[in-house]
Amino acid sequence: MVAPIAVYAIAISFYPIIYSLAISFFRYRLTDPSQTRSFIGLDNYVRAINDEGARTAVINTLVFVVGAVALEFALGLGLALLLWRDTRLNKIAAALLLIPISLTPLVSGLVWRAMLNADFGSIGWYLANFLGQREGLTAQSTTAMLAVIIVDAWQWTPLVMLVLLAGLKSLPVEPFEAAQVDGAGRWATVRHLAVPMLAPTIVLALLIRTMDAFKLFDVVFAMTQGGPGLTTTVLNFDVYKQGLVFFDMGYAAALSNILLVMIGIFAVIYIGVAGRQRREGLRVAAVRARA
């Protein structure tokens, strides 16, 4: 039974990672007429450190991940709490809110780009005429990343909401009934009861979105091409450019490995937090059982 899983893991996961790691130590450009690979050790990684574009892309990636995930979590939790009660209206609202997830990110990027155009976009025109955003959100270095975050939040907040809503609905009702009997208000119940009990689900939602946010590409490709300047160039967009525009496979592999390490660090942190939450939950349950 282990063999198929091992083959699957090797083919889908292990081999590509090892191959990517291996070619990152080579100067390997597919469009070179000779297509030779020369071993250059860590030069591709040194090049990434010295490359202003790559450094900016790392910072932009972190800014995007923190900004987008925080916004999606805040909105997702708020929506989940609003839709917690099992009414027909809430079910319809939840179904409608899921529509953005069904769109391809590239398509949503193109649609939002058209809508945000300052001169003839349906949203951009209002922003230009009533908020003085004459050049449009995506055209200004101060607001372009914000525009990308807004589009990502528009598309993926419903997913966070869905995960948290499922978590809320799976919570036992007794503690909430007890809190109601004790006269706890709605806000206190949410803050001191629902959110702590929801912690493992929150960690899961954050983990899913964080890992996905690190891989942002489509919206940047469709909306900004990484601009203005390098303002919205994220690491995955840089990997695409180096790998599939310049076919510089060694350098692209090095950049994608850096991205992999960044995702790995965040995943370890989240999994650590999730483990602590689980152990805390077991401890509380044991105390309650003894009582």
């Binding site: 155009n117 300052a118 001169d119 003839f120 951009g124 230009a128 050049e135 449009g136 055209a139 203005p228």
Partner: peptide, 21 residues
């Protein structure tokens, strides 16, 4: 040029001209 031109690609440039802006 129209204020948004700093972010125009070919399609947006053509639209601005064809719309008479």
């Amino acid at each position: 040029a129209p204020p948004g031109a700093v972010d125009y690609d070919w399609g947006a440039r053509e639209t601005a001209f064809k719309n008479g802006i």
